[in-house]
Design a protein around this nucleic acid. Structure first.
Lengths: 188, 188
DNA sequence: AACGCTAACCTAGCGGCGCTAGATTGTCTA
DNA sequence: TAGACAATCTAGCGCCGCTAGGTTAGCGTT
């Protein structure tokens, strides 16, 4: 039976290789360049193999990449917790800028694939918790969950607008400072 | 020569019909359903006619729709100016929710087609001015342009996160109120 | 040791996509 | 009325996501 176990392990490793190849290709050339044919060539298997790992096809592969992204984001935010609102905000923005394609997969694309199944997956809750942990102490009489959502939205909005070149490049750092100033101190 | 003028006018009207058909189809079935074949069928011409109007192809058609969207958004924001920060914020969100596909074309998709040509097109500046007009009076000693950008980012982020079902539906109105509270009053 | 079974895998192809070259039709001028 | 020119269409290219059906390889059984 050990051979069977090895086969299962190999299969799992190959599934991981698919997601990793998709992520690398997406960061290098954008998600439009991530086609099932190119992925199959990268892992040196034929196209249908992708569908035995991810029956949902390309969308499922992107969703798997997005899940990895949420786990990594949660880790980054947890590490920055001691830096308070400013530290977490900076870490969030840095994450989005370091892995833009992954960030797109998490938010812009694959809008509802892994999230509409059984409510919210744990990794997404953990990422949210990373923001909540620093917002809650300064929420005052405001509902901390709602305030965290708005804080999150402000960061996310600035990131996406900035990426689309809708904002002036020179104010980049100042904008982040404004967000921290408006959310890092008690509003009322 | 009047016949030639009529031909030019007919041509212009047909170009408008293309953009209108694209917008209607996008709102009804999403931008993925907007294909050059379906657009050609809707305007009752063959595919290549689209390219005589928009040499850039589908992207150019989406960009034209996005430009219309910015003009309409600027108008909406200008009308809401007397409502102050709260009025403009509400009008902005209402616009995005009323025409989600158009809003996507303006921000999420077609990232840099009409914006990287000669700096910023006028309609985009007008839309930004609609936000700036209500933020500037409450900016205090803060740079009003930067504050407007952050205000814009907060609204945009909440809209996109909400659409991807990343936020709790019941806090929808409260989140907007928080944004208005944090940006509608002098921060420092 | 040879068999048949099952799972893994690949080849080939479907319909549809954005886009375009070249033929065809229609319209105005001389 | 003949020719020039613009407008339009037919047909097809290469690519996409995805899948049906045939082929191969590894397994337990006799």
């Amino acid at each position: 039976m050990t051979q069977r176990q090895r086969r299962v392990r190999d299969r799992s490793e190959r599934g991981q290789r698919i997601v990793s190849a998709a992520r690398e290709l997406a960061e290098a050339e954008g998600w439009d360049a991530v086609t099932t044919r190119r992925l199959a060539a990268l892992i040196e298997y034929s196209q249908p193999v992708l569908y035995s790992h991810f029956p949902g096809g390309k969308d499922a592969i992107m969703a798997a990449a997005a899940l990895e992204g949420f786990a990594e984001l949660a880790e980054v935010l947890a590490s920055a917790r001691e830096g308070g609102v400013a530290g977490v905000a900076g870490a969030y923005v840095a994450f989005a800028e370091a892995k833009p394609a992954l960030y797109d997969a998490m938010f812009t694309l694959a809008s509802d694939l892994p999230f509409a199944q059984d409510d919210t997956p744990p990794v997404l809750q953990e990422a949210f918790a990373g923001l909540y942990a620093v917002v809650e102490p300064v929420a005052g009489r405001q509902a901390p969950g709602t305030l965290t959502e708005v804080f999150w939205g402000a960061l996310h909005g600035l990131i996406t607008l900035d990426r689309g070149r809708r904002l002036s490049p020179e104010n980049h750092a100042e904008r982040l400072a404004v967000v921290v100033a408006r959310f890092g101190a008690r509003g009322d």
